[in-house]
Structure formats: structure tokens, C-alpha cells
């Protein structure tokens, strides 16, 4: 029962981060600023949600469910390694194309 409560709380907080990421993706002025919510808030959302899901499927505790939990954690590790690289690739492409970052007072793009 306590486990279910923890799982639900983790999932809902993760959903809050996902929603914030999507809202920021729609609202922010240019793509340098859009990368902040889209890349990072989604990353921490994935961490919280997968933590909750692996906790949920861990019971009843067997070898198979423990291995499944480890696999889920492997996805989190991979996302945390890959997301800075992907972010950097996108930013680099923008810089080489000569796009100036949005500054205060510029028109909305």
C-alpha cells in the first residue's frame, strides 16, 4: 500500500515535469531557449517516472523482476548520457548556421 502511494507520487511529479517541458517547448522564444525545457525537464521526468515504474514492478521480488528493474535503470543512465550529446549536437548545428540567440527585446520567433 505504501509502495503504491510512493509510485503514484513519483509518477505524478514526473508527469508535472513532462507537462512543464511541453509547455516550455511551445512558449519559449527561440530554439536555444526551447532546448532548456525540452531536453532537461524531459530528462528528469524520465528519471522520476522510471524510478516509480521499476519500484512498482519489483514486487513480488524475484530474480527476473530485479533484472527488469536494473534494465529500467539502464535506460535512465543511457538517457542521462545521451541527452547532453543530442543537445550539444543541435546547438552546434544552430551556431554553425549562424543563428544568433534570442535576446531581450528581439521579435518573437
Amino acid at each position: 500500500m505504501v509502495i503504491t502511494l510512493i509510485v503514484v507520487v513519483l509518477l505524478l511529479v514526473g508527469l508535472l515535469f513532462f507537462t512543464g517541458g511541453t509547455v516550455g517547448l511551445l512558449r519559449f522564444p527561440d530554439f536555444y531557449s526551447r532546448l532548456h525545457p525540452a531536453g532537461k525537464l524531459d530528462g528528469i521526468g524520465v528519471l522520476l517516472v522510471i524510478l516509480g515504474l521499476s519500484l512498482y514492478q519489483l514486487f513480488p521480488l524475484t530474480v527476473a523482476s530485479a533484472v527488469t528493474g536494473l534494465k529500467l535503470m539502464l535506460i535512465v543512465v543511457f538517457v542521462f548520457l545521451a541527452s547532453p550529446t543530442a543537445t550539444h549536437a543541435i546547438t552546434d548545428a544552430g551556431l554553425r548556421a549562424g543563428m544568433e540567440p534570442w535576446k531581450k527585446g528581439d521579435p518573437w520567433r
Partner: peptide, 9 residues
């Protein structure tokens, strides 16, 4: 690039 960011999300 905006589209790539959207696809990534």
C-alpha cells in the same frame, strides 16, 4: 532545428 527539438521531445 525547432522540428528536431520537437521530435526529440
Amino acid at each position: 532545428l525547432d522540428r528536431i527539438v520537437g521530435v526529440n521531445a
